[in-house]
């Protein structure tokens, strides 16, 4: 079957099987930031935005993207690098494999919540697993990133 979607601001057409997952379609279209970490919707690595809403692309059929707007990390590279610099400044980028999914959710959270408390941040990002950092360094980076405008 054929679908059309807006991928990172550009029209993308694809021929897919009915069972193709959005995750696999996006990687086949060159969006390699989208990673698979599990098969059970537990890890958050494959997070993308569908019409601006964070979505696990491992759990969405590619067919459902038809007519929708999909954003991956490749579409928000400048913002990703801005937040990523805070992650790296804490040494919390580490292996980097969970970073794309985490960053997509952090950027979505920034749009959605105004001045979230640490508990709210933890809850919002609970679905983003990380095995390297114990989360503490990530949380410091997120806090500093969200506070950057206040200090500026």
């Amino acid at each position: 079957m054929n679908i059309e979607m807006t991928l990172n601001g550009k029209l993308a057409k694809a021929e897919i099987e009915p069972g193709t997952l959005l995750l696999d379609l996006l990687r086949s279209l060159g969006c390699y930031s989208v990673k698979r970490g599990c098969e059970t919707s537990n890890c958050g690595l494959c997070t993308v935005w569908m019409d601006g809403v964070p979505t696990l692309s491992c759990s969405v059929l590619a067919a459902r993207a038809d007519g929708h707007e999909i954003t991956t990390l490749e579409g928000v590279r400048e913002e990703a690098e801005a937040f990523g610099a805070f992650l790296a400044a804490e040494g919390a980028d580490q292996c980097g494999f969970c970073s794309p999914g985490l960053i997509m959710n952090v950027l979505a959270m920034e749009r959605e919540l105004e001045s979230p408390a640490m508990d709210e941040i933890r809850e919002y990002l609970a679905g983003n697993l990380c095995r390297c950092t114990g989360y503490a360094g990530q949380m410091r980076a997120i806090e500093k990133y969200l506070n950057r405008k206040k200090e500026a």
Binding site: Y32, T72, L73, G84, L87, P100
Partner: peptide, 17 residues
Amino acid sequence: SVSKKDYRALVTGKPVY
């Protein structure tokens, strides 16, 4: 505490794995 040399590639999702 310098940042890692490869961090930009990692945080912008470059195909490096």
